[in-house]
């Protein structure tokens, strides 16, 4: 999986919790596409129709707080979101994203240098963000090598499968 992501920005505020990303009442839907249709609907009405494959999310503090539901990551992936950059992430969302191979980067000050609809280029290994629209640059918190590895593999289960094959 590529560690450089370029995409159009959807900008969100602080404390976007997992109930806002995917409300509990939709968790029981069997079809992942049906589930994803409700992603962020209370924040941006019609988000699922408006979002395009390859878009990225830029959020404020504490993105993904609340529940441990992994659907909060998978609905964004299903809609084609390729990365999330936030001032900070809630712990469980951060882990779930990396485990699913969705690149996430913490970057203080990101909200003040990005507007909705800007084009961003993000280098996850280096932790570097370039706003292609405004030409501004910003540096995020570099992920430890072992987490970069999980993204590169495309998620922790692909890594687990490799590990288990090696042991056989």
């Amino acid at each position: 999986m590529s560690l450089i992501v370029k995409g159009r920005v959807w900008k969100l505020g602080n404390n976007v919790d997992t109930d806002l990303i995917i409300p509990g009442r939709y968790l029981t839907l069997r079809d992942p596409l049906e589930k994803a249709k409700h992603a962020l609907e209370a924040v941006i009405p019609g988000f699922a129709e408006k979002v395009r494959e390859g878009d990225v999310i830029v959020a404020g503090r504490n993105f993904g707080s609340g529940s441990s539901r992994e659907d909060a990551v998978t609905v964004l992936k299903t809609l084609g979101i390729k990365a999330v950059i936030a001032e900070s992430f809630a712990r469980i969302f951060f882990r779930n994203a990396l485990n699913n191979g969705l690149p996430v980067l913490e970057c203080k000050g990101i909200c003040s240098m990005v507007e909705n609809g800007d084009m961003l280029s993000v280098h996850f290994e280096k932790g570097e963000i370039l706003n292609l629209t405004s030409k501004e640059k910003c540096k995020g918190t570099k992920l430890p090598a072992f987490l970069v590895e999980i993204i590169r593999e495309g998620g922790i289960l692909k890594k687990l499968r490799k590990e288990l094959q090696c042991e056989k």
């Binding site: 441990s68 992994e70 469980i92 882990r95 779930n96 485990n99 289960l157 687990l160």
Partner: peptide, 14 residues
Amino acid sequence: TGIGSTDMVVVFAK
């Protein structure tokens, strides 16, 4: 501590 489904798969396996 709470974990996601993928982390739980790792626990189930290892």
